[in-house]
Design a binder for these strands. Structure first.
Lengths: 232, 232
DNA sequence: TCGACGGCTTGATGTTCATCAATCGAGTCC
DNA sequence: GGACTCGATTGATGAACATCAAGCCGTCGA
């Protein structure tokens, strides 16, 4: 495995503080693979064999119950997923599939647990990573329980705009049907929610969205750092 | 502060593996206080001053947005809350109030962060604790997004019965209005959801619930370890 | 060029859940 | 005992959201 394959990995907060020899040990069992779109990488309920790191592309985390399915989150480069399952040596709670062509690093879970026991810097980095993940899910849950679907969409668009460096017009990044699932509604209802936001200055054309007047949209969406701020 | 005040704390998984001197250091700044019911212990948005440990009683974690409020979780003895905020030195994402008379241990957050930096066993214990918390919230989110309110209630009751050592009849443990908020519905709707479960063998009388036929209720609720199992 | 297909939209309709108002019933305080 | 409060329930109604069935409109391959 050429050194360059793991480029970017070492710079990740998760791997930054650990001893070089431990990083090397982790990488020895690891490998990088490029997957086409719509490939199911892991299935919920399976034992956690590998810690995954998205190097490029994007991955959808989703879940099933009783013939229903919902999108839980989107993982973008460069970050890991299913760290909690790996650490607890527990089955995956979510399935994952590539949304587009993606490069993924796979690090054997048992190796991660061994190094976790040996390297204190790594253990501490995992703490901050998990604390961050935890807080993200809490925010998602508040979003779900406290807001209507149109309010969730409005705030989602405001967050998207920030990710797009504040550009008035930006790409959603994936299909609307997936956005609907992320927001916890049907595609049909999403279509109507977009219509409902027209009067608040939102123009949607396919996967391109334009926010005519951010202030106006904010008056409706009432974004809150304790729900919408990605870092806080 | 008498030694006995922290009884039980040392036995907590979180504090089990740490060096005695570090535990003592943590306890020096800590104190135990008994609060009456309905006292707001922390408010979302505030900086995290103390790591809280519920020693007896119970605590409701809740959240507000735009004049709405929702219950996020109930904390029972003996466990901590707002660990993630403490570690990240970030504002609380949730508020907390006592549900009944409760004894709470308060450990200064900055002290926790100092010992976290010094004690490797403590750091690793925090990892497993946070991973567990993370997985719990993911399960709650799946519950919310994949199930109807009546299905959520049915599965909640099945889990409650297990907590009550499988007894056919058991106490809810708090008011129905709070249960409604936990399930993400109104009290009125909860009342109707209980009615809807009568035909599946559920009898409710005040805060006492009786499950006539668990198998029957399970056929309706379709419990799933990846949502309902507290440990997995 | 032309179907075929898949995702998005639209309309009609039904279900789920919230809101509002009223009542009931179990404390609790004079 | 009687007035009061507060939570649970019930009924009537409305809003939010899902489902079903077309149609629309790009893309793609024969």
């Amino acid at each position: 495995m050429p050194e360059s394959a793991f480029e970017g990995l070492r710079g990740l907060h998760l791997f930054e503080a650990m001893a070089e020899q431990h990083f090397q040990a982790l990488m020895r069992g690891a490998f990088v693979q490029t997957f086409p779109p719509q490939i199911e990488l892991i299935t919920e309920g399976d034992p956690s064999d590998f810690l995954h790191v998205v190097l490029s592309g994007s991955v959808d985390l989703f879940s099933n119950w009783n013939d229903r399915e919902t999108s839980m989150a989107t993982v973008r480069p460069i970050s890991t997923f299913i760290l909690a399952a790996t650490i607890r040596d527990a089955p995956y709670l979510m399935s994952a599939r590539t949304l587009e062509k993606s490069r993924i690093a796979l690090i054997p879970s048992d190796e991660v647990r061994v190094i976790f026991g040996l390297d204190d810097g790594f253990a501490r980095a995992i703490v901050t990573e998990l604390a961050q993940c935890y807080r993200s899910v809490i925010k998602a849950q508040k979003d779900l329980k406290l807001r209507s679907s149109t309010e969730r969409l409005a705030n989602y668009l405001l967050r998207s705009q920030i990710r797009a460096d504040g550009e008035a017009e930006f790409e959603l990044g994936f299909e609307k049907r997936r956005l609907a699932s992320v927001l916890g509604i049907t595609p049909e209802h999403l279509s109507r929610a977009f219509k409902g936001l027209q009067s608040h200055g939102v123009v949607a054309d396919g996967t391109r969205v334009r926010i005519e007047d951010r202030k106006k949209l904010e008056r409706f969406a009432k974004p809150n750092p304790l729900i919408d701020d990605p870092v806080k």
